[in-house]
Design a protein around this nucleic acid. Sequence first.
RNA 1: GCCCCCAUAGCCCAAUUGGCAGAGGCGGGAGACUUAAAAUCUCUGUGUUGUGGGUUCGAGUCCCACUGGGGGUACCA
Length: 847
Amino acid sequence: MSQPAQGTPQQDETEEYSFAALEERWGGYWEQHRTFAPLDDGSAERRYVLDMFPYPSGDLHMGHAEAFAMGDVVARYWMQQGYDVLHPIGWDSFGLPAENAAIKRNAHPAEWTYKNIDTQKSSFQRYGISADWSRELHTSDPEYYRWTQWLFQQFHAKGLAYRKDSPVNWCPKDQTVLANEQVVNGSCERCGTPVTKKSLNQWYFRITEYADRLLEDMQQLEGHWPERVLAMQRNWIGRSEGAHVDFRVEPTAATAGQNGQPGQDITVFTTRPDTLFGATFMVVAADADLALELVDAEHREALETYREGLKNVSEIERQATDRSKTGVFLGRHAINPLTGERLPMWASDYVLADYGTGAIMAVPAHDQRDLDFARTMGLDVRRVLDTGEEDPAVTGTATTGDGTLVNSGELDGLAKAEAISRAIEILDERGTGRGTVNYRLRDWLLSRQRFWGAPIPIVHCPDCGEVPVPEDQLPILLPQDVAGEQLAPKGKSPLAGIESWVNTTCPRCGGASRRDTDTMDTFVDSSWYYMRFASPNDDDQVFDRAAVDRWLPVEQYVGGVEHAILHLLYSRFFTKALYDMDLISFTEPFKALLNQGQVLNGGKAMSKSLGNGVDLGEQLDTFGVDAVRLTMIFASPPEDDVDWADVSPGGSAKFLARAWRLAQDVESSGAAPGTDPDGGERSLRQLTHRTVADAARLLDDHKFNVVVARTMELVNGVRKAIDGTAGAAGLGAGDPAVREAVEAVAILLSLFAPYTAEDMWAKLGHEPSVARAGWPAVDEALLVQDTATAVVQVKGKVRDRLEVPVDISAADLEQLALASEAVQRSLDGAEIRKVIVREPKLVNIVV
RNA sequence: GCCCCCAUAGCCCAAUUGGCAGAGGCGGGAGACUUAAAAUCUCUGUGUUGUGGGUUCGAGUCCCACUGGGGGUACCA
């Protein structure tokens, strides 16, 4: 890359290393010269690397510093390799903290948000991230959320966005509903408040329709995503094979004759149809409507009391597995379709309304929960599978293993797996059941009763019902003139209280209507931002298809593991849905994923309550950007946590100064850039080329910490080569091999320490930017060693070392080894049974 | 409870396919420079590779069990 010479900042030749001076000298340079904007002209292979975009929380912190240092290594490495790299950055700028801040300060959330972004952006720029700022986007900009709303309309048109009444997770503090994925250990993922259940009418995305594809397409990600993330998603989707079984419910006395109704069927899901003969009662979820429908008049009051009581039980209590079982009898019976037996029907909270069908057949002998319930309520326990263990009715421990079916009619004698398939066949033949696959995944609850998010672009018309706002009327803008208390959570969306905003006309009939007052979960915003980066300023469409086709999918995504089943699952769902709408041509958004570790202090996550936070700004002021970045990278492998108490940014700074002085030495030696390194000192050249070759392999494997170590080794080697050692005079800094080595150091360092690398590059007499210097060419001839050290072992113990030519034959090496005096001595005349030769490095003699 | 990951020097961590356990850093120790110190530089590394077993000529590396640590998930029928 040729930049005009006047673009090179001035420097003083006698200076000492000072990170502050370097940051001053090069700060703004890359931005001004658009060093990191992709060419997008087809002249080089395109690659898209992306860090999970940040929420503008106030300022950059240690966690950002770690994550973005990692992503930047990948981006800068690829740039050096000659790829046309797209490395954009933007802001996940909708969300609750802005709203809470606005309430506190009697302001509009936008004010706080965009002020934070200003601060944080300048911190990012100081941090030297190789981002293309011309593509910066904010999810809270109308230019962005217009297309979030547009996408919602597409989902709505396809039936993938819908409303339903359902018991939902409710955060009493944030006064809003939460998606299943946002409930962590029964508490709100955001604020930690115990979550309660509330029955509400809410918007959902039909992600369950994609459950099988979300599972199957993980094949594409195998080996490129961390295994544990894939495992977490697999668990979350929770595929389980089993059967639906229909049970006829006996009519009650009251309903028996009614309109000749034969009574209703209820269907249960079970993974154990083989135990059907062992079912002794039925349980329906107490909080499901089904319970109310089924209960007879005599037991209705008891059920209602029970349901009332459940409201006071928090999710945390409810989930405690050692909690004793409770429930009420419904006064009804169901008929076992295989045996004709009458089974009493109960309602309990240990059956979940929104898993399976919300009702189960209980087989207490072979399911611990059912057994606990049976023992509490005094219900029958019947063993139908002999596992050789003692009778569960006696021990109180259900047997769930394999064995032989008993007391099960024609299933008798079969093993578990055979019995399962046979039972499904029988149910099928009789039309009272069928094999099925059930998923744990629920639909994604996307509406939120909060202000600072994208309004759901729907109008509720008394005549036309639910009417989508037409495309040409998007975006539905958030009101501007609201602040403070108006935004306070009241259990319904703050937008509902702003009459001038709510009241509108129906786009279909023109009659008076009301807008939907909920806003979208911010995970909707982040489910497609990586696509928008391909054409962030396109005002006419959600994105430019051609640009998306050119750049996506993302080649390398970098971010924290905390999004394993939130953002990452949602984004995968969006990608598949958009693929089905023929908006994009790929089915997985992120080809590879790197989870960086956390930054800890003293073995614990930094937190205000522990008072162990480390202020990034202070670290940067004390040690400089480069030293902090280098420390993040060097401390441990990228996916491991970094404990700030264990690392030494001071050591990193020292190393950078050493490296930088090498460039200064070369500069003072007067050696001109562009000299042919061919005449240079060979062993230093070998070190340089070996280091560069290994670095590429290590970078491909994301072993960034090792690359830093190897760079340190090279720096040490160059220093020694220049100064010489006690025994030998040095080369001085003028040797072409020294220049070659120091240039390699500058390029390697450009991935981790951009300011130092840039300054070294300038000292070496090159035009900026070092970021575009190109990866050093490796001379294969310098990688091969002429001789190798062969280890000679006797019985696995090292007895001698031989310097041998690398291309020595096995036979020659064996002979040399056997001729060794040390070997003969340790053999001591023993009989040689076998000689293993791995030329040129090893001989093992077995006696 | 179930699933996954990890364990190498005082500490953070390296060690292509099984082949000499040590690259790099921190800390420690010794020394040089200094009146002294800081800074800088030089020198300095023997350890049950968590434990026990197995496979192999050979195991940090592969297999099994266990221990310790971390993470995920949990009335999911």
